[in-house]
């Protein structure tokens, strides 16, 4: 029997000291949850294996065709990360991207807007929709899933309405900018890096970020601290909307004539990138930077599969399998370690 009870009054708490978590276990846990280590190792491995699986897949041309898509996914997934951090899941991503694309291409072509105004509209428009999502989730207490699913349909209707059924083309300037490179680096990648770094800094290092994390971990605990819970959640949804907008505008520019529903193929990858990046779907601790690395991983994986002859339909299956596999590993390994630890503890 332990002699931890009946301590003199001023002594520290009488409960037995919590068992320090084994070093091995904590390393595992860090690798598997909420850290950039796991996904970075996986990404480096993937790039190292790429030339072995498909020779030439790390050449300049394949890389240059992959990076813009990875950039768009990284930007979109940064937004999804913020929503997942607030224990939501944003199913309005396809509609948001489509809205950004149709605004940035359709407004100049059909309504004669100058490009700069159209690009701003393409970014701010989804931001405002995101804010509406946030209002519905916070003030009206509707489940995020229902809000974003319904909002997606509303957005697609709006896209249909604005485009009047036919896609419009991006202006030459926008297309040129999206295709261009600065110092040999694609502009899309530069923009993605800027957005991810800013978002990462704000969400992880700043006071705002700490409060966002607090609200994501526990709304009630954050409210008890005096944090304006609703305001922070609305901020997360609005910021996510801006990210989708930026991603959508870039995608529209890059693809020149964006299909009306070009956003559809970004929903699952955005969720997969968040999960791969180590953000728990139960909210709270999130890493935008890890999500960005995961976006690179997913896009390169897709590129690799395509180069060995997998069609796009098969890619959908591959993405689903990767997503479920990663979630399973995250779920099973800590549980296994816990079981082993508690066996050890009870054996003592």
């Amino acid at each position: 029997m332990t002699a931890t009870l009946d301590r003199p009054a001023p002594a520290p708490s009488g409960a037995p000291a919590p068992k320090p978590i084994g070093a091995a276990e904590s390393a595992w846990r860090r690798m598997l949850s909420g850290s950039w280590v796991g996904i970075t190792v996986a990404t480096v491995l993937l790039f190292a294996l790429s030339p072995v699986i498909a020779p030439g897949s790390l050449g300049t041309a394949p890389l240059l065709s992959m990076l813009p898509f990875a950039s768009v996914l990284a930007i979109v997934a940064a937004g999804q990360t913020l929503v997942v951090q607030q224990r939501g899941l944003d199913l309005s991503v396809p509609g948001m991207i489509a809205l950004a694309a149709v605004l940035s291409t359709g407004l100049p072509q059909n309504y004669g807007w100058p490009l700069w105004a159209a690009v701003i509209a393409g970014i701010v428009g989804p931001g405002i929709v995101g804010l509406v999502n946030g209002v519905l989730v916070t003030f009206f207490r509707v489940m995020p899933l229902v809000v974003t699913l319904g909002m997606n349909a509303v957005l697609l209707g709006t896209v249909f309405f604005i485009a009047d059924g036919t896609p419009s083309g991006a202006t030459a300037e926008l297309n040129g900018f999206a295709l261009d490179r600065t110092l040999g680096i694609p502009n899309t990648l530069l923009i993605a890096i800027v957005i991810v770094v800013i978002a990462g800094l704000v969400t992880q290092r700043s006071i705002i970020g700490r409060r966002l994390t607090a609200v994501g971990v526990s709304e009630r605990a954050a409210a008890a601290l005096g944090v304006r819970v609703n305001a922070y959640q609305m901020f997360a949804y609005a910021f996510a909307g801006l990210c989708y907008g930026a991603g959508g505008v870039l995608l529209a520019g890059y693809t020149k004539t964006p299909a009306l529903f070009l956003g559809d193929s970004y929903l699952l990858p955005s969720v997969a990138a968040v999960v791969l990046g180590g953000t728990a779907l139960t909210g709270g601790i999130a890493s935008v930077v890890s999500t960005g690395i995961a976006a690179l991983f997913l896009t390169q994986l897709g590129q690799l599969l395509r180069s060995v002859g997998w069609q796009d339909a098969l890619q959908l299956i591959a993405q689903s399998v990767v997503l479920i596999a990663v979630v399973l590993v995250r779920e099973l390994v800590p549980a296994f370690l816990r079981r082993r630890a508690s066996r050890r503890q009870s054996a003592e």
Partner: peptide, 17 residues
């Protein structure tokens, strides 16, 4: 696992199939 994630993955996989 969160049912939304499972069935979202299933959504994509079935579509792929």
């Amino acid at each position: 696992i969160n049912p939304v994630v499972v069935t979202l993955a299933m959504y994509m996989a079935l579509q792929g199939i």
